[in-house]
Design a protein around this nucleic acid. Structure first.
Lengths: 229, 229
DNA sequence: AAATAAAAGTGTATTTTTTACACCTAATTA
DNA sequence: TAATTAGGTGTAAAAAATACACTTTTATTT
């Protein structure tokens, strides 16, 4: 977005919590703000909705304009409405989140941002406004939703190993899982297909690579899902 | 609310879908609008948020001012953002729903409404704006949530029978359930307590009355719930 | 007062799902 | 080539979900 407020609705903004997963750690994408308030500070990618723009469209546009991430499916998860959460005036912000594969995207910046960077979830800088709370709430939603939607998969590269997938689940849910039961459950869904190749980056015994079965994936995404662990 | 727009945020409104359950039928509470636009037409209770008011507070206030229902817990379920959903200007509306026991409340009206009345879900009048869509979405959320939250219970009177409770579930979920399995599952939760009394209104063999166990109810409400049927 | 009609109430056997659990295998590195 | 490390695999027991039919209680009708 531009920092000119003429064409936007001044009371409603969008903030994006973009999760990535790399080296077995969850990360969040932050931007360095080039505009006031909180100029020069790291914060969530965000901006205002244009007067005749749908929320979904605005969310995608704002994410692209601030971080360069294009065509990312964002999901709204909560409205933040504290009266003084934004210093200049009353602004409601619509919290959105998305899951992406960090290595697949090149970050860039726009008029409102001077830098975009991944931060590990447990190494976040000090954040302005209520952005820390927004991240925490997003994390909670992610934790809840991963149990009944196949979203974990959007965080992994095209080809991945089962230990990778399991670690992702363990990181999000926050507990260790049984290897055999995890695989059993996964296999019953026909969601993944084993490939002939093995993981080349491994320094020990390499794991087989898998890929998602697109058909099953789309079907599960539509009809819901049950992946209690 | 008052129809004076000075103290409110003009771009964000709240609309309330209030569900009731009577005679085995789901009902929705509508109000006759006393103000433009859509003056004299039945619509959802709704209004604008004040400049320094939290969403929850606004929702309760608006519901009270338009229908007389006081102290009802409302749950936000979706933002409606179509650009032309409201004829006068761009207004986002925050859809809320609640479940109430109709016989427990006396309806009244305020400055903006001239009447408030329960309508059966399949006998709704023509509604202005996107209010029909809002009701349909609320219904869908209700259907989804009843499976893992003890919300069905908020629609029933203090004392209720198991056939009543089962009918409620059947109406919301939209399919017949097995009586024995329904009861078995219910009993395992320790959520209801059998009373010595029987239902006096019955014209056939009367069913035993039950009451919710407050403790278990609060616990399940907090920790979630699994009531797949 | 007896017969009838209508809804309430109750239990078991089968299948499916979930859980707990330990050893062998393949590849790298010392 | 031996040692180390992570990957991979199956089964038995427990718990949960499902399918299913007859008896009981009460009000109403005859």
């Amino acid at each position: 977005m531009s920092h000119i407020l003429k064409d936007v609705i001044k009371n409603i903004s969008i903030d994006c919590v973009i999760f990535g997963f790399e080296n077995s750690v969850l990360e969040v994408l932050l931007v360095k703000r080039a505009i006031k308030p909180a100029k020069e500070r790291w914060a969530l990618p965000g901006g205002f909705i244009k007067k005749d723009e749908l929320i979904d469209v605005a969310a995608q546009r704002i994410l692209k304009e601030t971080t360069g991430l294009d065509n990312i499916y964002l999901e709204e998860f909560k409205i933040f409405d504290k009266v003084d959460r934004y210093p200049l005036r009353r602004v409601f912000t619509l919290g959105h989140y998305a899951l992406v594969k960090p290595e697949q995207y090149v970050l860039s910046t726009g008029v409102d941002t001077s830098e975009a960077k991944w931060f590990k979830l447990d190494e976040l800088p000090e954040l302005p406004f209520d952005h820390l709370e927004i991240i925490q709430e997003a994390m909670e939603k992610l934790r809840a939703r991963i149990r009944y939607r196949p979203i974990g998969f959007e965080l992994l590269p095209e080809k991945f190993t089962l230990p990778q997938l399991q670690t992702l689940y363990e990181v999000i849910i926050g507990k260790k899982l049984d290897k055999r039961n995890f695989r059993k459950k996964l296999m019953k869904m026909n969601l993944v297909k084993k490939l002939k190749e093995k993981d080349k980056n491994s320094t020990r015994r390499p794991a087989y690579l898998y890929r998602f079965d697109k058909r099953t994936y789309e079907k599960l995404k539509k009809n819901g899902f049950n992946f209690e662990l």
